[in-house]
């Protein structure tokens, strides 16, 4: 009973920004919103004391090619902001293209989000605007720039080392 109440109150709070929504489980609501609405949406959840931010999950959606190797859908990144209120989870989802992976930082609303933001910056290559700290979080300081290990195209660093060697041999 309560489950439905929480999810519905959350849906009411976020109503004006929802582009598409989906309920996969009785206690879950996934909503897709456009990137510029992320901050106001998070702000209103926090102002209405609707739960807390569990984490930010990054997803890589690689580019799709047709049989002639022509890109029919460019590569995208998706960020999932999971908010929990008791058993209920609302996931705010935003999609950005590889070419412009920019999302506003929510750290001024939820300061503890900084670690999650740094994680997705490092592992996926998101560009979080105005995030307070962009120092290395997980990867070693010597990790090459622009290599994002959790993207599907990344297999292992060995490739990079050999390709570097090949380049230097050229």
């Amino acid at each position: 009973m309560e489950t439905i109440k929480f999810l519905e109150s959350g849906k009411v709070i976020l109503e004006k920004w929802i582009e598409r929504s989906r309920t996969t489980d009785e206690n879950r609501l996934d909503i897709w919103i456009s990137t510029e609405n992320l901050k106001p949406a998070v702000q209103s959840l926090v102002e209405n004391h609707w739960g807390y931010l569990i984490t930010i999950t990054g997803l890589d959606i690689p580019a799709v090619y047709d049989q002639d190797n022509i890109e029919i859908q460019p590569g995208q990144l998706e960020a999932l902001y999971h908010f929990a209120n008791d058993a209920d989870i609302i996931t705010i989802r935003v999609k950005v293209p590889y070419s412009k992976p920019q999302i506003d930082s929510i750290c001024d609303i939820i300061p503890s989000a900084t670690i999650y933001e740094r994680e997705v910056i490092e592992l996926f290559g998101f560009d979080l605007l105005n995030t307070p700290n962009t120092e290395k979080l997980i990867l070693p300081d010597s990790w090459p720039e622009g290599v994002y290990p959790l993207r599907k195209s990344f297999t292992h660093l060995q490739d990079l080392e050999t390709s570097k060697k090949e380049q230097s041999n050229d």
Binding site: T24, D25, R28, I54, H82, A84
Partner: peptide, 18 residues
């Protein structure tokens, strides 16, 4: 095919799996 969220209480607190 699908997505699932799983949360359990570890000795140190909430453990979250997606």
């Amino acid at each position: 095919e699908g997505e699932v969220i799983s949360r359990v209480e570890a000795p140190r607190g909430e453990l979250f799996y997606y």
